[in-house]
């Protein structure tokens, strides 16, 4: 009796929890199909116009000036998506390699200043984004570096390396050190051991770190806002700019597509993980 009540309460709490975290997303997805161009909270029929407009397929606007606006914003949007993907891909590659290598070095070798080093690695993660953003901006200006995609990539790497390091390091700490010794004992050099034993064992951690780095890099607004040059607007910065000019229905369509992409990435990650473990 008591446990049945407990189950009921638990179910209600669980449902409320999911409503709480998913309701805003649901609102966005629904409104992205709302035909009402002025007030998105009043349902005015189903439409795909906002998606068509974004992708440059829109024939909705009849007057010339309006059409020009659409086409222009479509090009900008696609450029922003391209920038974001470029930054995220480069950042993921760099921070995954460097973060993994750092975790290995810190776990397997004793050297002077090791404690300071591993502590210092976590600092960028805990620093408020706005501080990091301003700091990076001042740094780039001081050394006379033009703001571009490169500065964004460097900026993202400064804190994403820490994320990858942390995840790989956790996986490494759970690994039996005797595995590497067994490999060496059986005649494998350090490099062979790395390739054949360490890397496959760490793969789920490395993959998880890479996915996280990719998602955070795609998503970052605050830091990027400071260090993005005029030609290097990323998707979040672009959306932020659009909102400042007024909330347009297209934003909901963009958001919905981002949600879809995120779900796909997360599903891919889960699938890869489940394939690895047995």
């Amino acid at each position: 009796m008591q446990s049945r009540l407990g189950w009921a309460v638990l179910t209600i709490v669980a449902v409320l929890f999911f409503v709480f975290i998913y309701a805003p997303l649901l609102v966005i997805v629904v409104t992205s199909f709302n035909a009402n161009p002025v007030n998105m909270l009043i349902w005015d029929g189903f439409t795909l116009d906002w998606y068509r407009g974004l992708l440059g397929l829109g024939e909705r606007a009849t007057d010339v000036s309006n059409r020009a606006l659409y086409i222009e914003s479509t090009d900008q949007l696609l450029a922003a998506v391209r920038n974001s993907l470029t930054v995220a891909a480069a950042t993921t590659a760099i921070s995954t390699v460097v973060g993994t290598a750092t975790a290995l070095a810190l776990a397997r070798h004793r050297f002077k200043g090791r404690g300071v080093y591993s502590g210092g690695l976590l600092l960028p993660m805990m620093m408020p984004d706005i501080v990091l953003g301003i700091g990076l901006l001042i740094f780039f200006v001081t050394i006379g570096m033009q703001l571009s995609l490169l500065t964004i990539i460097i900026g993202h790497c400064t804190f994403l390396i820490s994320y990858v390091y942390l995840i790989v390091q956790a996986r490494l700490a759970g690994l039996d050190p005797a595995l590497e010794e067994a490999s060496a004992d059986l005649g494998a050099s350090e490099w062979t051991t790395f390739r054949k034993v360490l890397l496959p064992q760490l793969a789920p951690g490395i993959l998880g770190g890479a996915l996280l780095a990719f998602v955070i890099s795609m998503d970052d607004l605050v830091i990027t806002y400071f260090i993005a040059g005029t030609g290097s607007t990323t998707l979040p910065v672009y959306i932020f700019g659009m909102i400042r000019r007024g909330v347009k229905p297209e934003i909901n369509a963009i958001a919905t597509m981002i949600i879809l992409a995120s779900i796909l990435i997360a599903a891919l990650g889960l699938w890869l993980r489940s394939r690895k473990t047995d």
């Binding site: 010794e181 067994a182 060496a184 059986l186 005649g187 494998a188």
Partner: peptide
């Protein structure tokens, strides 16, 4: 170094891959 020594070890934890 260990990997050049012509002998082998059975580890307590087995250390299977």
């Amino acid at each position: 170094p260990p990997f050049r020594r012509p002998l082998n070890t059975v580890f307590q934890s087995y250390a299977l891959f």
